[in-house]
């Protein structure tokens, strides 16, 4: 239990702090980044750039490891197929992201910043996830 939760809570906390420092929990800044044809705010490109650079180094280390430091093995996605579902789902996600300037991580992080607004967004997001779950007939 402790072993299963310590790494995720450390990662989640650092993740949430990084989202907040980078401006991802400020919907106006996110929508400013998405306002490419208007008053574009490039800040989020720096957020994504910094995160991708660090993770690229982590992937290089991962290839040299036989197993993770605190788990029995790696559980990583290995699919490579481009499906209508992937593209349609991502297209929908972008629309929702653009409407309110929130994606899942900042939605949860914002529970500590604007609890009422964030709770409405998170509840609706979970309801949307439930819709997919029920459509798939696994509910």
């Amino acid at each position: 239990m402790i072993r299963e939760t310590l790494v995720p809570i450390a990662a989640g906390t650092i993740f949430g702090g990084g989202l907040t420092i980078g401006g991802m929990t400020d919907p106006a800044r996110v929508r400013g980044f998405l306002d490419l044809f208007g008053a574009w705010d490039p800040t989020l490109a720096f957020v994504m750039g910094g995160a991708v650079l660090v993770m690229a180094a982590a992937w290089m280390m991962q290839r040299k490891l036989l197993r993770p430091f605190f788990a029995e093995g790696f559980s990583l996605p290995d699919r490579n197929d481009l499906t209508p579902r992937l593209i349609g789902g991502s297209a929908l996600f972008g629309i929702g992201w653009g409407i309110a300037g929130l994606c899942p991580g900042p939605g949860f992080a914002a529970l500590a910043i604007a609890p009422a607004s964030a709770a409405i967004f998170v509840a609706a997001m979970l309801a949307g996830m439930l819709v997919v779950r029920l459509m798939e007939g696994q509910g």
């Binding site: 929908l92 409407i99 979970l126």
Partner: peptide
């Protein structure tokens, strides 16, 4: 927005 994000991220 939340509904669309929830559906989209699961499908995608």
């Amino acid at each position: 927005a939340g509904l669309i994000v929830g559906i989209g991220t699961r499908l995608g």
